[in-house]
Design a protein around this nucleic acid. Structure first.
Lengths: 220, 220
DNA sequence: GTCTATATCGGGATAGAC
DNA sequence: GTCTATCCCGATATAGAC
């Protein structure tokens, strides 16, 4: 329980940084401010974090850990697919909620293929794959078309990314619009998965699978 | 035809900037380099462009104009929906092609709701609406479900944004993967529009329309 | 190993002289 | 409209206290 003094300092700096990013914005917060708020010299901040952006990465990594633990707990008991996926989404959004503005800073890098902070980058691969794996667990116990099945965890992850992007934009009180979007889109998504099993749409499904497999090899 | 000296200077600076962004990258190019390449002092560059990013915006605006003219020409004659949409996409990608690396800089801001450079922002509204209108024209002459029809231009625009994002990431030779993605996804998209008219999927379609209408009011 | 203090540099942005 | 001088900040480096 008693962490080393070093870990405590690092923690103090990271907490101060996230706090400042949240209240003043990422670009507006200076390293000097962060250091001052954490009670260390400028060099101290750089001793623990190679750059301002490294702090974003550190937050991203930690959140992945915390959320993953919660998700694992929730998915232990059986439930319908919709509820299982919702549990994953809820856990993530609940943890993200106080840091919504700050997360905008993270998504600023989403589009740069070479940026380590991009959710699609090599550096964030471990986090991404863990998240995809969560959806694979959520899908357990559901009857799925054989050809589509291997792609669904990744599709759900992409769906989650879309929701997070929408949520970052969502300026409605307490992001109610995002909540509503999940309420409407998730049942639709689940219904589509169910519909995809019908022989009627077999050709269409085949095409979708072909598309997914072509556009694959880890996007980046 | 004869532009003012001021407009020429501005043009010279913008051309130099795009050239440098393309060859050396956005972050790596300094304002001092741009100014030097354009033959003006640092302050001169800032006289015409409020920031380095404003240059990206200027490029974005100009490309919208040029592409829009081309699109208007192509859509004058009738053709099947798939070909009409493809014409719009081709025109855009053709103009973007030499600036692929540089456009990454634009998409870096896609996720920040308050960033003027975001494709969803108030500042880019005019460009966005013009682009949505192009797809509305492309849809003319196609039988569509009444309830879904008003949303399709915007959905196609969103589809286009997704493709552009994929294309920016696409490191395959000459972005062949994106080409392949369009080849596979566009017929699928058109087929889904066609399928949406069946009475069988009426309830599902209604739900989708409800979702679109809820998540509306211009996202931002 | 964990920091403080300080100096230095490069680059975005601005003010004001001309 | 254009240039020069200047400011601020992120980042790096270094010397040294403990």
């Amino acid at each position: 329980m008693s962490r080393s003094k070093s870990a405590e300092t690092r923690e103090r700096i990271l907490t101060a940084a996230i706090e400042l990013f949240q209240t003043r914005g990422f670009a507006e917060t200076t390293m000097r401010e962060i250091a001052a708020a954490a009670g260390v010299a400028l060099g101290g901040a750089y001793y623990y974090f190679a750059s301002k952006e490294a702090m974003v990465m550190a937050f991203y990594e930690r959140s992945a850990e915390v959320v993953h633990e919660r998700v694992a707990g929730v998915l232990a008991g059986p439930a319908r697919l919709e509820e299982r996926v919702r549990a994953v989404l809820d856990a993530r959004f609940e943890y993200f909620a106080p840091h919504r503005r700050f997360l905008g800073a993270l998504f600023r890098h989403a589009a740069d293929p070479r940026d380590p902070l991009s959710p699609f980058s090599e550096e964030t691969r471990a986090i991404r794959e863990e998240s995809v794996a969560e959806f694979a667990v959520a899908l357990e116990g559901t009857r799925l078309p054989r050809d589509l099945a291997p792609h669904l965890p990744w599709l759900l992850w992409l769906y989650q990314m879309g929701l997070i992007l929408f949520w970052i934009y969502d300026r409605s009180p307490r992001q109610q619009r995002t909540r509503r979007l999940v309420d409407l889109s998730l049942p639709l998504f689940v219904q589509l998965i169910d519909l995809a099993r019908l022989p009627l749409v077999r050709t269409l499904r085949r095409k979708l699978v072909a598309l997914l497999e072509e556009s694959w090899s880890e996007t980046a």
